[in-house]
Structures are given as structure tokens and as C-alpha cells.
Nucleic acid binder design. Sequence first.
DNA 1: GCCAACGTTGGC
DNA 2: GCCAACGTTGGC
Length: 152
Amino acid sequence: MNYWLMKTEPDVFGIDDLKSKKTEYWDGVRNYQARNFMRDEMKKGDLILFYHSSCKVPGVAGIATVSKESVPDFTSWDKKSKYYDEKSTEENPRWFMVQVKYKKKFKEVISLSELKSHKKLEKMKLLQKGNRLSIMPVTKSEFEFIEELSKK
DNA sequence: GCCAACGTTGGC
DNA sequence: GCCAACGTTGGC
């Protein structure tokens, strides 16, 4: 079992959208490192911290799971999609996505500033300087610590 | 293979 | 809206 953090802009697709849709294909990721995590390492049942970015209160909004392992991201060869990439084709896809499933919404978003205040989380990839990855691994202890924070 | 220019991310 | 940090592109 692996643990992950996935960033999303709540104005575009937030925890409430996932809650009402139940599952969602994580399309549109166009970063190689993030793609590799989805294509090679994310397994069904893995747990995901669902992170809201570029918004009023950035932070962890809830938990999701991986419900389907990677499949080619069909938006990459759809000319009408804003995620279209001419170098990706159905025969030779360049981009991949997993399907994620809603698990729970925290009573309150655990804000980035709170995450930063905990010594236990100081090594979190999310908090390292200059980090811009939209999908990144978290450790079991980081995941569990944050889930506990949400219960307070 | 180097690196300048450019685009994007994302907190503030 | 600003801007630091980083990834990608493309000329050489």
C-alpha cells in the first residue's frame, strides 16, 4: 500500500465535486514525474490526500483512493481538449491517468500553514522549497498524522 | 549536451 | 497581480 498527495484547484474540481461524482479520471496531467507515478506506481487501493491549491485556503481537504490503475489519458489525442498533445496518439500514448474514488471529506481543510507548523511534517515533499509536483508520494506516518489532525 | 528564453505553478 | 522556482523547448 502506497500513500499519495494529489493537488487540484477547487474552483475547477474540488472535494465536493469528487464527492458528488464518486469517481473521476485524473486527466490532464502533463508532467513526466507525475505521469510516472500514475503509470508505474499507483496501485488500486492506495490512499490519497486530496489537496486544494491556488485558492483561498490551500490545504488537505479530504481522502480519496485509487479505484483504477493507469490507462492512457484519452484527452491527449482529443483535438478538442485543452489537454491535447500532438505527440500523443491512441497507438502510442504519452500520457496516463488513474481513476480516483471519493473516501471522505474532512470537517475542515487542514491548511498549508497548519501543516507547516508541525515538526512531524517538516520533511513532507509538499513543504519542500520550490516543489511544484501535482502528484507526489507521502509516507505512511505523514498520511496517518494528517488524518488524525482532521479528527480534532 | 549546454543554456537562454519562455511557460507554468502556486503561495502570498 | 507579483514573483520565485522549476520544467520544457529549441538553437547552437
